[in-house]
Design a binder for these strands. Structure first.
Lengths: 212, 212
DNA sequence: CTATGAGTGCCCTGA
DNA sequence: TCAGGGCACTCATAG
């Protein structure tokens, strides 16, 4: 059973009703210190309608709420319902962008936008499930692996830090095999075109990095 | 002067043009190992149009890109342009919500949504400014590179033939590092759970395979 | 992402 | 020890 904690102020919202009608979820209503929904010990969600969001920027409530959430939760999420750019209000686009950028870049808080209440419900439910039960299987990080050996080697090297398609090809050309790349010293790695000492070191470290 | 690094694939986009016309910004185009824009040593941005986003979910490119960004940068951002829920595509809403939730909840990557290219430009520019100049005082690029991670190693090993998420983890657990996997003989590789002689040989051959 | 199906190869059991 | 069926995991495809 997936548990979602909702703040009592949300009681009247249709969202809470939708959530409580879902199979496999248990909704607990109470007084949250901040935010509207808590879906794990690290994650809480502040849900705002587009107009509410705009207003909370102007009266400074947004900063306050975000700051508060960051104290109690490691990973707060701001969920905006509707398009704030489309609201008829005095606020300038720059201010809007500035606020979102601040929330995101400085405060490191995720900003999600959904169209309506229904999407909000689905989003909150799914995130709760993912956090509490995982996906139910492992996600394949890489797909469409090439079969030809040369391509396979290049593809494999793309897994190293700071190595994209171009550098992977360079590495392979220079060393001739994955094995030789693994044996290379930092100095030898630096010889490769487009690889500086910093990247070379990171690659070297990743290859030797031991399970923590 | 605020610096923004853009991947060369973005050259044709109107966004890059808009950015380069902005006062006080210096845009450098080059080959980024991953992501489309880098705005600090810790933060890079993968920008996707709504339809692109949907397509990249379906062909599995999204997971790969996110994973790669997480290896190279401390704080990757996924910037979605337009409303993915409104695209006419065969994908189910559940899958869409699932993807966003996965990026967010499981991968702990910030998701940002904007309406169009213009907003993207403003958002990227503003975030760059916030990160590089702070809101008032100086917080320039700290040069602390992301350290080698378990995830990076597992991701790398997943590039090998016949190796999916499960086996990659098993390999890493058994040998402790990419380096040790590369040094292993066919016999030693066979020791790993669920790896028989056939798979072990394929892996061994791929690692030693020389450029043809 | 979610769903489904086929294919490969490991592994366990039983003789 | 070896054959065979069950299973786990990879990989392709489709919405």
């Amino acid at each position: 059973m997936i548990e979602i904690y909702a703040d009592s102020r949300e009681t009247r919202s249709g969202l809470l009703k939708t959530l409580s009608e879902m199979e496999g979820y248990s909704i607990k209503v109470g007084e949250l210190p901040c935010g509207d929904y808590a879906i794990s010990s690290d994650v809480c969600i502040e849900r705002k309608s587009a107009t509410d969001f705009v207003i909370s920027i102007m009266d400074g409530r947004l900063m306050e709420q975000i700051a508060k959430m960051k104290i109690d939760y490691k990973r707060p999420i701001l969920l905006i319902e509707g398009n704030p750019f489309k609201t008829r209000s005095a606020i300038k686009t720059e201010a809007l962008v500035g606020a979102i950028s601040w929330v995101n870049a400085i405060e490191d808080v995720t900003v999600l936008m959904v169209a309506d209440e229904g999407e909000s419900a689905k989003m909150i439910a799914t995130m709760a499930r993912h956090l509490q039960q995982g996906l139910g299987y492992e996600v394949p990080l890489r797909r469409n692996k090439p079969k030809a050996s040369d391509l396979g080697s290049v593809y494999n090297l793309e897994g190293l830090p700071g190595v994209g398609p171009k550098t992977a090809q360079n590495l392979f050309n220079h060393f001739g095999s994955i094995f030789d790349v693994c044996m290379a010293s930092v100095e030898e790695l630096s010889q490769v075109p487009r690889l500086g000492k910093a990247s070379a070191e990171r690659i070297y470290n990743q290859i030797r990095h031991r399970k923590s």
